[in-house]
Design a protein around this nucleic acid. Sequence first.
DNA 1: CCGCCGTTTGGACGAATGTCAAGATTTTCT
DNA 2: AGAAAATCTTGACATTCGTCCAAACGGCGG
Lengths: 199, 199
Amino acid sequence: MRRRTKVDKFEDRRRELADAALLALADLGYARTSLRTIAEHTKFSHGLLHYYFADKVELITYCVRRYKEACVKRYEGGVGGAATPSALAEACADGLAAALEEAPLMHRLWYDLRSQSLFEEAFRDDVAEIDESLQDMIWRNVRAYADLTGIEPTCTPSEAYALFDGLFQQALQRHIVGDKDALDDLRRGVRKLLPRLVS
Amino acid sequence: MRRRTKVDKFEDRRRELADAALLALADLGYARTSLRTIAEHTKFSHGLLHYYFADKVELITYCVRRYKEACVKRYEGGVGGAATPSALAEACADGLAAALEEAPLMHRLWYDLRSQSLFEEAFRDDVAEIDESLQDMIWRNVRAYADLTGIEPTCTPSEAYALFDGLFQQALQRHIVGDKDALDDLRRGVRKLLPRLVS
DNA sequence: CCGCCGTTTGGACGAATGTCAAGATTTTCT
DNA sequence: AGAAAATCTTGACATTCGTCCAAACGGCGG
């Protein structure tokens, strides 16, 4: 019991620091974020980071894992309540567009960290896990769409994820530079993509 | 005449240094590449970089522009010699897979720099230009495919680029972590994608 | 009240960074 | 050949980085 509260307190602070770090990373990107700028996003001093994390890599990977938690929680809601294929496509398109609009900087960070993982092997496992759950999320939608139409998907889960991710990443890029049509085009792209993946 | 050779020599050295910088960037990624590590990839000392480039940003943007030159030269060859839709799809798939296999580290760098451009506004214009020419390259293929089938594309150039880019980026990611099926899956994905974009 | 222990601070360190300037070297022109 | 210009090296600078540590803080049981 007493030990519970102790490790919980420790873990709670780790989470708190990681959340602050995520905000800093989302603001500046991985390449421009130092431990000191992270600490400035908290009410603590920079030395504390090394009390809760062994080094920078451990902090960042913990952040990535934490991002994933929020991510899967965000998307596991799913698209249960759609009765027709086009209604599901609409819901899926709206969901992705809403996710983009709600937290564009976090998604920007995700693509940054995913790029970093191609150079820094320490990030690869966590990034791969996140990719996996995103792919599952996409596949659930494709699967549900196929079920509603009564015909089978003509693509693999991996293919589907790559195509959706391409649309999403381009929309994010355009949205960030101020393109007003980015969200609408994303919705339109998703609505048109789903029928293309079944036959 | 005299002035010609002088500025040409200057530009030649700039190109030489930028090429070395691109190799360093492709090795380490933007976040881990310093001016001194770039200089180590050349036969010159680090001070020279500031003789040919005002600062780090100018060097990097020059590198991006230089990458673009090589990029469009690489792809403007096109897919002229295909007689049937499926032959063109095959050629397109092989071309993209070959490009990935030939220089995976350069493509990794491209995605890194494109991510950086979302944080560093100084890179955005050059990145946007490259995106544009890549989109044109993709669209020429879609356009040619549609012409061979006799039916019209059902997507915009922007959509087509996003979808192809999604496939390519995922293939690159898998290829870099050692997935032997990445190239084949890319080819398969491209072959299947083209028919989906017409009618 | 004291002393303990988990927590936090602030400063120090060596290394690395971008930038710059003074001087050495090479090339070019007359 | 000698002067002038272009090119290149070297070392220094102020910062900033990740890391570490001694000291201070704070709450709680004795």
